[in-house]
Design a protein around this nucleic acid. Sequence first.
DNA 1: GCATATTTGTCCGTATGTATA
DNA 2: CTATACATACGGACAAATATG
Lengths: 228, 228
Amino acid sequence: MLTETTGDRRSGSPQATGRDSTASRIASALRDRITAGGFQPGDQLPEERISAGLGVSRNTLREGLQVLVRERLLVHRLNRGMFVREPTPDDVRDLYRARRLIECGALREADSVPVRVLRALRAAVESGQRAAAEGRWRDVANASIALHQAIAGLAGSERTDDTMRGLLAEFRLAYAVMTDPRAFHEPYLRRHPSIVEPITAGDLATAEARLRDYLRDAERQVLAAFPR
Amino acid sequence: MLTETTGDRRSGSPQATGRDSTASRIASALRDRITAGGFQPGDQLPEERISAGLGVSRNTLREGLQVLVRERLLVHRLNRGMFVREPTPDDVRDLYRARRLIECGALREADSVPVRVLRALRAAVESGQRAAAEGRWRDVANASIALHQAIAGLAGSERTDDTMRGLLAEFRLAYAVMTDPRAFHEPYLRRHPSIVEPITAGDLATAEARLRDYLRDAERQVLAAFPR
DNA sequence: GCATATTTGTCCGTATGTATA
DNA sequence: CTATACATACGGACAAATATG
């Protein structure tokens, strides 16, 4: 079931283009739905149904979908259509390699920790713990993602931020195979403070070492959660 | 002048789709032309002219262009059209930050150097020197790019390779501001062997240190080459 | 293995809005 | 200020590929 949204076309002005093109708004809307779990990996996105649901033409929809293919959230099978990507174990290994490079690298290259990043780190830890206490495991995942995004932000590079966003979006697809989000997130939740704490203290080397262990363990556990 | 290609539509069968969609072939064709300098930064790509030149409909062209926007080779100005990106000094700084993270990180994380990478490194050094000797400065740039791509390949991650490809493609746009390619590439050409040599010897730490210096100097010089 | 229905791939025409000479 | 050129977005068409009974 695809539960088409009614579409959030600004009703204020007749054909409010808002700020950017319809195609990019379509891409954002679908990206949000995919990463929020609105589609499952492997689901097809039939052009007719989706375009009707979003209230755009098929051509415009296809423009938007190209972007998501480039972001690896969708795969295109010629003459078959668009499908939500199903990450393989190899994908997971690749994702963790890329994350190690960026996150550990960001910690190593950073010569200072901007307050902006510190605040983001602390906010992520706190909101993660609050969400866990209330059993909102989806929000726990969001907090974890925000934390790792903040770490990547230490590199101070827009492009790196963007790359990281893409990797983490792909990760959400991998999370979808998790049957028990609590069992997965809870142990790592506890380790978040042990990474953020040395960052606060300016000891980035310790933070990097702990992050490296954390990522290694997480990789193992994600892989273990794969069927077969 | 845009020197439209005649298009390589298979004449054997009526509409041979070859292997992948027309949109992605369009994207590849335009990406090649942009990175090869077939368009200058700032050039507009009018839909009518380009689609006619490539022998595809405007709809199909627009699908392909989305990909290049996502790759940052084109910028989309609403109601104005698509333009080849003009990197700013800030972009250059960001690109070098991202490159340092990936290239130096790849050297650090690597625990071994696959023969495949070694061969690529040596081939890049050699073809660069040959091209320089014959004054083919565009090929010198290509060799340099191949070398850095190979270094990133040490990470052993497809996604990292892809990220690197994107960064280097953007770099070609920045090179376009260089008035004198020889003056820019020659000094770095000499430093290539000093980076590859320790890699061959398995001394990745030395290679990383030299690469870091190299990137710092290159960044300075690229920035210096910017007008104003 | 066949006939049929569905979906994709690609094109065209066009109404409307926006910028520029 | 009005042409003119161009981009935006839609809808319809139809062949080819694929799924379905």
